[in-house]
Design a protein around this nucleic acid. Structure first.
Lengths: 148, 148
DNA sequence: TGGATATGGTCAAGTAGCTTGACTATATCG
DNA sequence: CGATATAGTCAAGCTACTTGACCATATCCA
């Protein structure tokens, strides 16, 4: 990078990500899911395909197993997930979404599409797609973590 | 947005922002500032130009005045900021960076430049600049907040 | 095969960073 | 001037996390 303020570019990335998360969360909340925080969405994204163990969830969210287990307790209590026996490991338990959990995930996907609509309007579909492609090249993989 | 997974695009934004913040924080830590968290950098960015009051800092970080005051206590204790009398308001106190705070801010700017170097290598200077310009158009302003 | 070690999960206790509530001092408005 | 708003602090409480200890099961290897 050149002599511009590289820090402000980093800040713009954070602001963009925050704006998306805020918009999605607000939309999901407005559709009746009032007992969730944004982090739960990241948990759902790990659980949605085939479920996951507490340890896998912990790794995905970059927290301890204990913290992940507490979150699962909360989501069970609120009706979004269930603990099942693990088919291949008697130590483990498989955490899977309930129908309510899946419905919430669908609502989040609709919310994400709605949140991106003004972006497409501002930049154009084509440029937005290029933006996404560029970001995918530089964004690190790995666990999802809170920013600070 | 179309039928693609809009949520994963949002996740890419978060991952990109997190990657930058992580890299900057790790670099700053490696240069001897081991008692800071990323959020302190956002505080510094508000304090750097001319200082700020606790209330202004609280608004910038979207926390209560009490939380901002506690953070200032901590930063005073660690030698990064000072409380001064406010020149125009006897109720208020102006929080300003110490020389150590300014040195840390410079280290963060260098770290941000270093963190963006691989991005420029991957995408090219021109495309990175376009990316930044696009983001600036869609990123919301307002206070900086943790993601969850 | 069986004993050592690693892994999945939970229980319990402690902690850091935030919150709400109450209060004082100073500023501003009418 | 008096009423109200704002800057800041003190105190207490909450919550999402942590560390540490522990048990059950799986895996590795002599």
């Amino acid at each position: 990078m050149h002599s511009d303020d590289a820090l402000s570019l980093a800040a713009v990335f954070l602001a963009a990500g925050r704006g998306l998360v805020d918009a999605i969360h607000a939309d999901v909340t407005a559709h009746g899911y009032r007992d969730l925080r944004p982090v739960h969405g990241f948990a759902f994204s790990r659980l949605a395909p085939d479920g996951a163990t507490v340890s896998e969830l912990a790794a995905h969210l970059d927290v301890t197993k204990q913290a992940a287990s507490q979150m699962v307790d909360e989501l069970v209590r609120k009706g979004y997930v269930q603990r099942r026996a693990h088919p291949a490991d008697a130590r483990a338990r498989l955490v899977v979404l309930t129908e309510r959990g899946r419905a919430c995930t669908r609502a989040a996907e609709r919310a994400a599409q709605a949140a991106l609509r003004p972006w497409a309007a501002e930049l154009g579909e084509r440029r937005l797609r290029e933006l996404a492609a560029d970001l995918a090249r530089v964004a690190p993989g790995g666990p999802l973590r809170p920013i600070w």
